[in-house]
Design a protein around this nucleic acid. Structure first.
Lengths: 108, 108
DNA sequence: AATTATAGCAACCAAATGGTTGCTTAAAAA
DNA sequence: TTTTTAAGCAACCATTTGGTTGCTATAATT
């Protein structure tokens, strides 16, 4: 099985999916699949596939009401990306130190 | 042409590429392509392709010395991802407010 | 009860992706 | 100078991806 972070990275790798997520974040209310599809120049089925992928990555929640499915962005999924990034924070200092050493050498 | 952030997201969407980046961050010194390939169960050519993609996304720098090419992670590329994430920060509050409203309703 | 609208299922398709191998070029070491 | 070694180029391959269409099921509206 695929890891969570891998699913998320795969999900946001596609610009259309990023835009779907974006639209859902901006929307004040949850949107049905056809409502979302209406915003794109792609068939409803195409959009459905993207939505399922996003959902699978935990980036949006889906609530069925009658025949409709309402989607809403799950912002907390972004924390997984933040965590992934956080690991590299500790190397940032070192990188700056290397730069400082370089500048020191130049001025001596 | 593809946007910068799109290249970066595409680059990190693949687990092998994330690992190459990871290895380069951990390495105290720059590594040649064969050195990197030695860490993976993939042919050198396969690794080269990944490296080119990462380089194209600005995630690593390559310096040619003689017949060798030395690669080094470029941590600052991660800032593009941070910027992308930062946009959604302002929606967090709202999201928390919605949760608070929900809890308030339950307790009344 | 008939019609319309929302969504699922499945098959299909072209292009992109992640990998391989074989051969060449050129630098370094023997 | 011959032989290794590092890397590039190009063709090839299977799988995944991003999209389509046609048809079905079911809920809502008239």
């Amino acid at each position: 099985m695929q890891s969570r972070i891998n699913k998320i990275f795969k999900a946001i790798a596609d610009p259309t999916r990023r835009e779907i997520f974006h639209v859902l974040v901006l929307a004040t209310t949850a949107l049905s699949i056809t409502q979302i599809a209406g915003q794109f120049n792609i068939s409803r089925q195409g959009i459905t596939k993207h939505i399922m992928l996003l959902h699978d990555a935990g980036m949006l929640e889906i609530e069925s009401i009658g025949r409709e499915k309402y989607c809403q962005a799950n912002l907390s999924a972004l924390n997984e990306i933040r965590d992934w990034l956080a690991f590299y924070d500790k190397f940032w200092d070192e990188s700056l130190k290397n730069l400082q050493d370089f500048l020191d050498t130049k001025n001596s």
